[in-house]
Design a protein around this nucleic acid. Structure first.
Length: 567
RNA sequence: GCCCCUGUAGCUCAGCCUGGAUAGAGCACUAACCUUCUAAGUUAGGGGUCGAGGGUUCGAAUCCCUUCGGGGGCGCCA
């Protein structure tokens, strides 16, 4: 399609200017302005190479252009040569392709990718920050699948350590055998409240911190009572997480629990140490020397044999490598850990745990308009609250906006899909590394550059096709309105957008694409009535609507957003 | 002190990797459009020294240097 047209131009230009393919590669660009064609060749670089006036070069090449198959015309504009694709040909190809299930998806069979994301601590409920992480991890997974990879979605639960023991201690002391059930609270919120309670009490009574350390030692020693209560609280939290993730539409293929490989990790690191891969510092800590990588040295195991974060990460990397032998291993983790991951990857290389490539998909913080979220100041946005709030807002919209008669269940279901769609879109439309500002008011907005806007375009397309569908041959010549041509060109871009989003791990490219497609469709919708058009035009437009509908759906799904049939 | 990210319209952000022809959206504001496939839509309007300075180039928001502002990191925290 477009790539073929591009190739055709490149070949022609190479021939006309008597150059090699290599010389011509990267010379073509896509003009932004209408009327400047679909591809353009600025002749300045050739001018430097050939030592000739770029305007003359443009003329010269133009004079030697062959007959094109996919290009309708070329024209000279000063030092530029603009090429226009044959839209009839394009239309036919695009409409045939875009209604297929796998349109835009790579047919190449690629290897395994393991995407680790979310990886929460099991001592408090999930927050808005976790949702950005989850939305990113899930969307990147979907995009990589579309690029032909086999993706394993992995999550590490940090379920042991000081943080969880704090909750336990507070619960033992002040919990009075209450349970999430007895209080009617989600388990993660229930436990999180005791965590907060601990922090408050410990400010008045610092001895509590010592008690937590004692408990930690008991836990490590395998004390049955401690393990039992730890298991109970962890279970509650995990149940809570499970519910949140279900609400948000996230699933994992592989779950890791730090508690399960914690002991093994220490042993593994000692083994590497004995092989001489690590050294001891003057305090007796086991350290990875990274100066050859231009990085600061890193403690991987404390002198007393207890583990640090890095101990776990090295071990988990090895476990993942041993089990899956992935081609690419991706970690979706906030950008405050950039250095940590540079160090981790350097260490893994040192140890020879180097399956394919490692990538830290680093993303920026989510700030509120007032600034950074701080748990101590209670300004953390809770994931469950947010999802619920959005669904409620949408529900009110549905009930007041239309005369549709949905029953209660249908309304709730719709409201949930639209609310979560709005949230995911909002979290994914920014480039990952952008430190984004989350404005709660704007996040519930359903107009403009939002998920519901895209979902709505899908609904409009669906409604047309519900009444009538396209039949028989595609008559491409029936589609020649500017709105139709623009729409077709946007559809033609879908494969390259997926490829780029996959190569760079950038879901926001899909979000932008989907928004633009919805935009163009709405323009078409205003200008070009489908069902009222005469027979042949109607049929061609029905094909176009169908292609748009499919592509909107795929775009949304790549973002982890459900399409809806009605709104 | 050192390292990384960042600065584009009143606000929130694309574009920067891979330099090209008049810098784009959305929100907000103003004015229109529903007996017409769902108005969660569309159209029109104003709004910019692309933080500043220098350099490279035929050409710089984009590449390089300097500088100022914002954020993050430099833990035997995660």
């Amino acid at each position: 399609m477009l790539d073929k047209a591009k190739k055709e131009i490149e070949d022609a230009v190479a021939k006309a200017a008597k150059l090699t393919d290599h010389d011509v590669a990267q010379l073509l660009e896509v003009p932004r302005v209408e009327g400047q064609g679909d591809f353009a060749l600025p002749c300045f670089k050739l001018a430097a190479k050939l030592k000739k006036d770029p305007k003359l070069i443009a003329k010269d090449i133009f004079a030697h252009l062959p007959k094109f198959k996919l290009i309708k015309k070329a024209e000279i504009v000063g030092p530029y040569l603009n090429f226009f694709v044959d839209t009839e040909n394009l239309t036919k190809t695009v409409l045939e392709e875009a209604v297929k299930k796998d349109y835009g998806f790579s047919k190449a069979k690629k290897g395994k990718v393991i995407v680790e994301f979310l990886s929460p601590n099991t001592n408090k409920p999930l927050s808005l920050g976790h949702l950005r992480n989850a939305a990113l991890g899930d969307s990147v997974s979907r995009i990589l699948e579309a690029n032909g990879f086999k993706v394993i979605r992995a999550c590490l639960f940090n379920d042991r350590g000081v943080h969880i023991n704090k909750s336990i201690l507070a619960y033992q002391r002040w919990g009075k055998n209450r349970t999430p059930k007895s209080e009617g609270v989600k388990g993660d919120h229930f436990v999180g409240d005791y965590y907060v309670m601990f922090s408050k009490k410990a400010e008045e009574d610092p001895k509590l911190n010592d008690e937590v350390q004692e408990m930690l030692q008991k836990w490590e020693a395998g004390d049955r009572a401690t393990l039992s209560i730890w298991g109970t609280l962890n279970g509650w939290v995990l149940d809570g997480f499970k519910q949140t993730l279900k609400d948000f539409g996230i699933e994992f293929d592989k779950e890791y629990f730090e508690s399960a490989h914690y002991k093994k990790a220490k042993q593994l690191l000692m083994d590497y140490f004995k092989k001489g891969l690590f050294k001891r510092d003057d305090k007796g800590n086991i350290v990875a020397a990274l100066d050859s990588h231009g990085l600061p040295d890193k403690v991987v195991l404390r002198a007393d044999g207890t583990s640090v974060y890095m101990t776990q990460d090295i071990t988990l990397a090895k476990m993942k490598y041993d089990e899956f032998k992935p081609e690419i291993s991706i970690y979706v983790v906030g950008d405050e850990q950039n250095l940590h991951f540079q160090q981790l990857f350097a260490i893994l290389k040192m140890l020879g745990i180097k399956a394919g490539q490692y990538h830290h998909l680093s993303y920026g913080m989510v700030n509120l308009p007032e600034g950074r979220m701080k748990s101590r100041e209670g300004t953390v946005v809770d994931a469950d609250d947010l999802i619920e709030e959005l669904a409620d807002t949408v529900k009110v919209e549905i009930e007041t906006r239309h005369n549709h008669e949905f029953n209660e269940k249908k309304t709730e279901e719709l409201a949930h899909k639209i609310g979560v769609g709005a949230l995911k879109y909002y979290l994914l439309k920014f480039e990952p590394k952008t430190t984004m500002v989350f404005d709660p008011k704007r996040s519930v907005s359903l107009e403009g550059d939002t998920g519901p806007y895209v979902q709505y375009a899908f609904v409009r397309a669906s409604k047309i096709l519900e009444k009538e569908t396209a039949k028989g041959k595609i008559k491409a010549e029936m589609l020649n309105l500017p709105e139709e041509i623009a729409l077709i060109k946007q559809l033609a871009r879908f494969p390259e957008v997926i490829a780029k989003a996959g190569k760079d791990y950038q879901p926001h490219l899909i979000a932008i694409y989907a928004r633009e497609l919805a935009d163009l469709f709405n323009g078409f919708y205003e200008k070009a009535p489908v069902l009222k058009a005469n027979k042949e035009v109607k049929n061609a437009r029905l094909y176009l609507v169908d292609a748009v509908r499919h592509t909107l759906q795929k775009s949304l799904n790549l973002l982890g957003i459900d399409e809806v049939e009605v709104m």
